[in-house]
Write a protein that binds this DNA or RNA. Structure first.
Lengths: 380, 380
DNA sequence: CCTACGTTTGAATCCAGGC
DNA sequence: GGCCTGGATTCAAACGTAG
């Protein structure tokens, strides 16, 4: 089944990820989640964010925790039936999501203790590989009125890859670290609930959707695990927070929503979103994605001459540069990395940061010469 | 099957809870968890704390950036053939625990994303009724050394009653609130991992148990959900943290541990514990949480928009805010601190006080926005 | 005695690309 | 697909030693 491409929103990334031609980009598909997912092409989506519903019976219990109602579901068989139905539903949509995910794609699901254990177990049973569970801590949760439990001040997100052997998933580690006081990002996030002007209201002034998620939460997810131009699928689109944030951050979205009223709210909301300036969202190149430079190229260009003696920063070890870009340590010859490792008696070593050349102003680390080569290649 | 009562430890509560005559109070039962639980009388235990195997599935070894090897939890007791084997084990011990719990009793289980979804699902399937999931946030978790995931900075506890119709369980709401600056106790707890003098060491100076839990965590559990004189059962006793804290806080314990060496460590540890004076058994005040704010949180909350141009107080330097909370200075991207340092050609810089936003009434220092975030968080 | 600095360590499912 | 190798990657807290 083919969809006509919505040409309005184009990938603005210089990386230009491959977009599947049959994806209904930047649109809300109205219909049953599983039926609509079945129409989407396999291996076409970079990221999935899912905020699935609770089991209805559980939701009723949660809203009215008085004893008479609790007594009514004191039937183990009845409970099993309801959990079982929820599990079947969960497996069905998880299976479809797994089909449409690219091999490098990942899934985020959010839930509370009512359903997240079912979802997590189903994920694992279907072969997904959990990368993290993440806790959304709410600055302003609803208090516990009766004082019989802890205030429910968090929800749980699960981040998972398609399988244990999945490689190459997107995780914008360096950007996240730079935005977090230069500390690596943790699995606990502190974010306010959605309220105030961000909360969609109907004509009656009441909230348009009961469980609207804050844009800050979706922004954290998309900035963590997607690139500009990526396709983000939300099978439970609701009020369209995923779409609004995707548009703002230069990602494509595909939304599925059963309720026409919710979908209408979502469409109007997204239409009003102004995308961020291109410069504010382009991907900063991560160090691990920088162009590879061979040490032989450094030697070939005469930046380091054959015969040069290299030392570590404290002068404990010493090796000699050979014309072919290898190092010699006594009679042992190998790469800058292998010789660095052997010199220290270790398994591994990054030769670029370990070895130095003694210059007129002191030691110069090899990495500086690599940067010179990279700059030359960029200019050339 | 009857056990002789250990008369040394007596309930010192004025409430004098009924103690079952066949309980082996304040003792460690050595043997298989399920077999030992089967010997205990039904409906005799007030609280269960369980720290079951996590079923970690570690691939190769893991090294820190300095190449040192991480001491992994690779013990045989943590290995299971499959998820279904783990599930069967989980159901078996949960079933026995449910049998020995009093009608008013509750269960706490701790786990990580490797196992907690299995445990939570099994709980629900067996008819337990979840009261809360609680997040133990670690002040000092082990970092993620490869930068490929979020730092795993928390573990999850599930607090559950025997069933949906359970009434009269213990929750010391007033004491918890009084100990928390008169705020309701929340479902996220900030507690350091067990290290330093509290960590049990063998004669060789190495840790006696790979996963010893902090006493502060157990104290929070026991003070929340038990009374002095209550019986606390731990089916995976390990290094005996539950027993040590129970004795200190005037609760009885029953421990089950398969490993004789662990049990010996636990017994010696508990023997050395001095119980608190009766008057002192109150809730310890919660640790004040660090008010560290990330610049990404300022951007996420819309206080500073992506694309905003920042300047220093004299307008000499200029940088652009990006959606992920980093700054761009020409083609260089980094944290507010790094970019501030690079702009000035210095080693370091406090970006919060260096950078300003040009507003209608002049420059506004970034620090002002940080204060806004702190105020929001405090209000929550 | 205190301060400074280096070393060690913690429940972890921790790489990607080329041949 | 399997093997090999280049080379990227860490934070808080406790403890030991030097000065």
């Amino acid at each position: 089944m083919a969809y006509r491409r919505n040409g309005a929103a184009l990938a603005r990334s210089t990386e230009a990820p491959a977009l599947h031609p049959d994806l209904p980009l930047d649109r809300i598909l109205i219909g049953d989640c599983i039926a609509e997912l079945e129409k989407l092409p396999a291996a076409s989506v970079d990221l999935v964010f899912a905020d699935p519903p609770y089991n209805l019976q559980l939701q009723g219990d949660l809203r009215r925790p008085d004893q008479s109602l609790v007594d009514a579901v004191d039937d183990a068989w009845d409970q099993f039936e309801s959990f079982s139905a929820y599990d079947a539903f969960t497996r069905a949509w998880l299976l479809q999501v797994r089909r449409v995910l690219k091999p490098t794609g990942t899934l985020w699901v959010i839930g509370s203790y009512h359903n997240i254990f079912r979802v997590g177990s189903a994920l694992q049973d279907l072969g997904y590989w959990i990368l993290n569970d993440v806790v959304w801590r709410k600055t302003n949760p609803m208090p516990n009125f009766r004082g019989r439990r802890f205030t429910n001040a968090h929800e749980t997100l699960i981040w998972a890859a398609r399988g244990a052997d999945s490689k190459g998933y997107t995780f914008n580690y360096e950007a996240l670290k730079a935005g977090n006081e230069d500390l690596q990002p943790r699995s606990d996030w502190l974010i306010p609930i959605c309220s105030g002007g961000e909360r969609l209201k109907g004509d009656d002034g009441k909230k348009a959707h009961p469980t609207q998620k804050p844009e800050a939460l979706l922004a954290r997810v998309l900035l963590s695990a997607s690139k500009p131009g990526d396709v983000v699928l939300d099978p439970f689109f609701g009020s369209g927070t995923t779409g609004a944030v995707a548009k703002r951050l230069g990602r494509h979205f595909v939304g599925v929503e059963r309720d026409r009223e919710y979908a209408a709210y979502a469409k109007a909301r997204i239409d009003a979103v102004e995308p961020e300036a291109h410069e504010a969202i382009v991907q900063a190149p991560a160090k691990r994605e920088a162009a590879r430079v061979a040490f032989s190229a450094v030697v070939e260009r005469g930046l380091v001459k054959p015969g040069t003696r290299l030392v570590d920063d404290r002068g404990r070890y010493e090796a000699t540069v050979r014309a072919d870009g290898t190092l010699a340590l006594g009679s042992v010859v190998g790469s800058i990395h292998r010789i660095g490792a052997i010199a220290q008696g270790r398994e591994a070593c990054n030769g670029w940061t370990f070895w130095h050349v003694a210059g007129p102003k002191g030691l110069v680390v090899l990495d500086a010469f690599r940067e010179t080569v990279r700059a030359e290649e960029k200019a050339g």
